[in-house]
Amino acid sequence: MAEVKAVEKEVKIEEVLEPSLDKELRIKRKKVVDPGFDETIKRLTPEKIEKTINAVLNLRKTAARFLAPLETCIHCALCSDACQYYISHDKDPTYSPASKLRLTLWEMIRRKGKVSPEFIKQCARIAFTECNICHRCSMYCPFGLDITYQIGMVRRILFLLGVVPHNILDQDNSQSATLTQLWISQADWIDTIQWLEDETRLEYKNLRLPIEKEGAEVMWAPLGTEPKIATYHVVRTAIIMNVAGIDWTVPSRDGWDSVNMAMFIRDFETMQRVVLGLYENCLRLKVKRLVLTE
């Protein structure tokens, strides 16, 4: 926890430049201090960066897939007006979606993957803290260029290099190891559901939070935060289900947490495992519907 507090303090450091970058790529930003950026880039070597970028972009075979959108873009700036980061930063052109590609993917391709760890850190700041993959820019593009997909591939490269905001990466790590967002043990998950039923049925007669009820109509898959730190959400869901007369259940096995942080950082493998876990539980319990929080 001491480390996290230190990070919060350092975030207040004012505007900095990235002196190691080419002049044209230097952009003014408040410094983002995150061990997921600052410490992880120390583990990188030029060789690893080059190999990773080339593996993802497959520059020999499929560079056109990435290059064509970049070359088709006429910089009309329609995407800019779709971007909340651009608008909320007084229309600073360095926040425009096209600019974000220019500052990340374009340079990766132009330099055939030969970029520095500092450049990777800048890419991480742009791809993770100046774009939230909302897809609005792609919708606005008159050519239908999927800018979000391109930024997503930048995130994929960053995930493979391990340069990801540490809070998000830790949740992804948790999902990889436990299929839960917040390192929730199997015992704590079931115990929490039982404890909440104990508490709630004092107020709502015969209220149940059924675990492993085969053949129920609905399987509910909460966010990991709900049993971990927002248990009142679980209680409210249980009350709604019971009052509405819905035949529902939750699984006891891993594959109950519907958070998919892996999707946001393009850890496609963990992303698939999270989704498969939910489906496997639904099919095993023979439910007809999967209900997710959000």
Partner: peptide, 19 residues
């Protein structure tokens, strides 16, 4: 099993391979 306790949000402990 998880072989070592790791600190909250410790991404580096995870990379030490603790499962």
């Amino acid at each position: 099993v998880q072989t070592k306790r790791k600190g909250a949000v410790d991404i580096f402990a995870f990379w030490e391979k603790i499962w």
